[in-house]
Amino acid sequence: MNAPNRFELFVLEDGEKPIEIIEDTKIPNAATIKIVKQDHTLGNMLRAQLLSMPQILFAGYKVPHPLEPYFVIKIQTDGTITPQAILEQACNKLISTLASLESKFNREFSFKDIESGNTGATAGAGNDPYGTGAANAGGAWSQGRDYLDF
C-alpha cells in the first residue's frame, strides 16, 4: 500500500545528487564519500581496487542500512593525492580492466562461434537449446508428464 516504489532503490530522484563528499576533520587526507543509489556491487569492487593502490592507507565501505539505498566509502591516502582523486583513478583503472575483459570476451565468443559453425544470432545446429538432448526433445513432455513430475 504505502511501500515505496522498488525502483527508488536504484533510480536517482529528481535533482538528487549521486555523490556527497564529507571531508574528515580529524584524520589527515581522509574523506568519507556517500554514493547514492548504489550497493555492494560498486562498493566492494571500489574498495578492493583502492586497497591495491600504493597511495592508500585506508579504504573501507559499508551499507549502513539495508533499506537505505546508498553506501559510504571511507578513504585515507598518504597525502600525495586527495581521496577524491584516487577514487577517480580507481574508477578509471576498473573501467580499463573491464574494457580489456570486454574485448577478450568478444574474441573468445567469436572463436566459439566458428568452432560450432554458428553464425551469430541464428540458432546453430550444434546447440542443444533446452538441454533436453536432440533424441529426447519433447520426450518427457509428449508422454503426458507435467512440471510436477520433474
Binding site: P18, M45, L87, C91, N92, I95, L98, E102, F105
Partner: peptide, 22 residues
C-alpha cells in the same frame, strides 16, 4: 553472450557515472 557483454558494459556505466558525479 548478451548477458556477459551487457554485464561488463553495465559495470562500466556505473563507474563512469561515479566519475561524473565526482
Amino acid at each position: 553472450q548478451e548477458v556477459v557483454m551487457r554485464g561488463l558494459a553495465e559495470l562500466q556505466a556505473k563507474l563512469a557515472n561515479l566519475i561524473l558525479g565526482l
